[in-house]
């Protein structure tokens, strides 16, 4: 029996070893990660037009004021930050480092959302950890190149660059958008969490096009195609929108590819902006480009997926993607 217990413990230890977290490396990194979190805080505060202080550092990182002071002192001694009557500022060197961390964070979120297709809800946490590793291993630029130098992350925040942020088109808050006019979501704020949750439930993400159809003191009723849903005014305040592009505005004359009846033909007009990364590339590669002729070839007993004939081949697509392809019905 003793042997048994020993054997089991041994096996468990072996399994734990195989799946181990690199604790040792982690410990050396924790301090670095803390420093980077402070830099990131000062950096983002400034981009929001606010100032950072020891108190805001302690509050944001949820650490004791003493620890915050220690971290800031270390940054100062490394020549990364300066404090001036209670306000923290980054030196050019510190600015470079901080930008790298924020870049890593937003690029990783982009990777998780667009390529690994993780839910927007789940991308922040892993990015919060992965950013430090990416910076330490100098992999930020490689990731940027691999993703095709995206301009903004899945929330719609710009990815910072040495040259300054890419100029994103001006956006307005959804609450002030005129009723009956379609708007493209360009940015959703992921804090506070309760509001973010509401936004995600409504299916809103950068690229989605919605039309506000009714508005009351505390909520807004929105439509996306045939889907109608409501959003509290507070949550709508966290959503930034802009006017839709000229071609997209004609969308009302088009139908979704998934809505074609079997045997009907059409012409591809547009891939929805919500199709991003891997999925978009895949559809383009299959020939679903602008002006391509398509025919709904085969329905499915279970409704999903359906098959379409594109450029001489039959390709099955699931509805969630086929519904993001807009086509003009041929007579």
């Amino acid at each position: 029996m003793l042997l048994w217990i020993a054997g089991t413990v041994g096996l468990a230890a072996a399994a734990a070893f195989a799946l181990r977290k690199p604790w040792v490396r982690q410990r050396g990194r924790n301090r670095r990660a803390d420093l980077e979190d402070v830099l990131k805080h000062i950096f983002t505060r400034r981009h929001e037009g606010r100032e950072a202080s020891m108190e805001s550092v302690a509050g944001h990182l949820r650490i004791s004021p003493r620890r915050a002071i220690r971290l800031c002192t270390e940054l100062e001694s490394q020549g990364m930050a300066e404090s001036d009557s209670g306000t923290l500022r980054l030196t050019p060197k510190g600015e470079d480092w901080a930008r790298e961390v924020v870049r890593a964070h937003r690029l990783w979120e982009t990777y998780l959302a667009n390529e690994a297709r993780m839910s927007m809800r789940d991308v922040h946490g892993p990015a919060e950890r992965e950013e430090h590793r990416l910076v330490a291993d100098r992999q930020v630029e490689a990731l940027d190149a691999r993703l095709g130098h995206p301009r903004s992350d899945p929330h719609g925040d710009p990815i910072p660059r040495i040259a300054g942020d890419a100029v994103l088109s001006p956006a307005r808050c959804l609450t002030g958008w005129p009723l009956g006019t379609p708007a493209e979501v360009v940015h959703v704020e992921d804090e506070p969490e309760a509001l973010f949750e509401q936004i995600l439930k409504g299916g809103l993400a950068p690229g989605t096009v919605v039309t506000p159809i009714e508005s009351s003191a505390d909520r807004i009723i929105l439509s996306e195609g045939s889907r109608v849903f409501e959003l509290s005014r507070l949550a709508a305040g966290s959503v930034q929108v802009r006017a839709v592009s000229a071609e997209y505005a004609q969308r009302s004359q088009w139908v979704r590819l998934s809505d074609l009846n079997t045997g009907e033909q059409g012409e591809v007009m547009l891939l929805d902006p919500a199709l991003r990364g891997f999925t978009r590339r895949r559809l383009l590669d299959l020939g679903l480009t602008g002006r391509a002729k398509v025919e709904a070839a085969l329905g499915n007993a279970f409704g999903d997926p359906k098959a379409y004939r594109v450029r001489g081949t039959t390709i099955a697509l699931r509805n969630d993607q086929a519904s993001r392809v807009w086509v003009k019905r041929s007579a």
Partner: peptide, 14 residues
């Protein structure tokens, strides 16, 4: 292995 189903494309060859 969290994530949503990514691009499902299936060619139905002749």
């Amino acid at each position: 292995l969290q994530g949503e189903a990514s691009a499902f494309t299936l060619e139905l060859p002749p």
